[in-house]
Design a protein around this nucleic acid. Structure first.
Lengths: 223, 223
DNA sequence: TAGATTGTTAATCGATTAACAATC
DNA sequence: TAGATTGTTAATCGATTAACAATC
């Protein structure tokens, strides 16, 4: 008897899954049907054991000597991430960032559809992505009726906490927070932070240490 | 004799520095002048030793029993990240994402000024953020003349590789890549990736395991 | 068959956390 | 002084990498 004990995949592993998926989609378009961890690892610069463990953690199984069936591996990964069936999300914040997120084509491929757009202070008659921008006051009612679980928070920092609390209060279970502010909404609500300042810090520092290489990066390249 | 041996700060530490800075700015606005690692750690949910090591890695020193001088700590962190003097960047990609990045107010506070906007196919007379959108053909010449080192890449995925190579060829040393594509431009160029799919993967999975809690998250919260 | 590949266990590496002396 | 805090060394934890048997 199999006990389906998920060994609770680690966040680093989880973050690598989309990279595998992207590569699989490319290869699928090229007509390939089989892949091995070595192929994936070589292309991404990872260790092949790491790839194998990541895939195993997502529930994929391969066959010795053969590798993985490309199509099946892709499906397993997409299912594991919940990207196989469309999830619906509310976008909150109709400013430039919100508009950019609506315009981003990649969401649909990852099972995410923005079904309504809200703003704390919508301009009368404003439309974003072909949808009317609704006032926040309508969010709770619509969330309940449409059974939407996910909210994308793209308002300015000074409104983010209040808006996030409103979203949590409306029953949204996950919030993808693009505001530059750590949101803590209690254990009920899953918050995933997209913090550009963190990314910029890594870039700034690496750029600075190019000019001033007192701490050398991994590999000095040959001349 | 002191040998200034930088122990090459780790990426996780580096990514936490902006969080400390943000908190310090808030507290400074409230008139506080001293801080301790315990305060920072408590507010962010970190271990206080971790905070102390992060600050030390950035070159900050405090005094036992007293803590750190807030203003001085802020200055040290900003200087360490290179956020104290304005760096100039080119934005490449005048689509919705590029427009959102231009509109983002947070860059100036982090020493980043977008000084010109480019696009592979600019609409005639197009303006973004009050600046004319220039064709990519002008990038190399301007980069050399303005001594710009950093480029922000915000074009669609299918143009990202060619555009990134052009940017590297123009002498840009750092590329902040918002296209959903791993860019490898050789060891000469520092590439920092902002990959929304990775962030979405973490969110999707945590949201999915709320409904189907076969792998329980860290702390079940008390009722 | 021989060789490439998976799955898994062991070793290594690095980051986080604990312990504690120094100190203002 | 006593207590809070820094700075640092040691212990723990977890992720990555290496080793290797199983296998198609």
């Amino acid at each position: 008897m199999l006990v389906a004990m998920t060994t609770s995949i680690s966040v680093p592993s989880l973050r690598r899954l989309p990279l595998y998926l992207r590569l699989l989609e490319t290869w699928r378009a090229e007509g390939r049907t089989q892949v091995s961890c070595t192929h994936l690892a070589d292309d991404l610069g990872f260790d092949s054991t790491q790839v194998r463990k990541d895939l195993a953690a997502a529930g994929a199984t391969g066959r010795p000597k053969i590798g993985y069936d490309l199509q099946e591996l892709r499906d397993v990964l997409r299912r594991f991430l919940g990207w196989d069936n469309p999830g619906e999300a509310f976008l909150v914040g109709a400013g430039p960032l919100g508009q950019a997120l609506v315009a981003y084509e990649g969401f649909a491929a990852r099972g995410l559809a923005i079904v309504a757009v809200f703003d704390p202070a919508p301009a009368p008659g404003a439309m974003v992505g072909g949808k009317p921008v609704l006032p926040l006051t309508k969010l709770k009612d619509l969330a309940g009726r449409m059974h939407v679980r996910l909210g994308i928070l793209a308002v300015p920092a000074d409104q983010a906490l209040a808006t996030g609390q409103l979203m949590a209060g409306a029953g949204l279970q996950g919030i993808w927070n693009f505001a530059p502010l750590r949101l803590d909404l209690g254990a009920q609500v899953v918050v995933e932070q997209v913090d550009l300042a963190q990314s910029l810090a890594v870039l700034s520092h690496r750029l600075a240490s190019l000019s001033n290489p007192s701490d050398p990066p991994k590999s000095p390249e040959p001349p």
